[in-house]
Amino acid sequence: MDRYRFLSPLSRASGLGSAKAGFTHWWAERITAIALVPLTVWFAASLIAHSGSDYQAFIAWAGAPVTTVLMILLLLGLFWHMALGLQVVIEDYVHGEAKLWALLAMRFLCVGLPIVGILAALSIAFGKSAPL
């Protein structure tokens, strides 16, 4: 037990929840939340700035390297945060066999949709024909 003296409080808590992984979920929710504060504010501000833009002006913005990188980060952070949040909501309100199907469908969507979005963002950036 002496080795616990040399562990940080964080290391002591890691992996010791009732399910051995409760801290991971909580911590990932916080990391993605912190990342999403600047990313979503940037996105909202960009939408405001492009309120009157036509397609050409919009694509010029959306295809810029900075926009593409931030958009991909937004999609990854958003759908990761979304999967963590919806998991708790489903676990709280959906019971029995429906819970399994709801969790499966939610997980598949939260992996599939950001990939579709990233492909769209990349095809705008590189001017290729679109996915779907």
């Binding site: 397609y55 919009f58 958003l78 979304m82 949040g85 949709l113 979005g117 492909l119 095809s123």
Partner: peptide, 26 residues
């Protein structure tokens, strides 16, 4: 949070429409 999850699906649809071209986007 649940409502914004629905909006996130819309965000992907919007990006796909923009990638497909001016007609889909308009």
């Amino acid at each position: 949070g649940v409502a914004l999850s629905v909006c996130a699906i819309g965000l992907v649809g919007w990006l796909v429409a923009a990638a497909r071209g001016p007609r889909a986007y308009s």
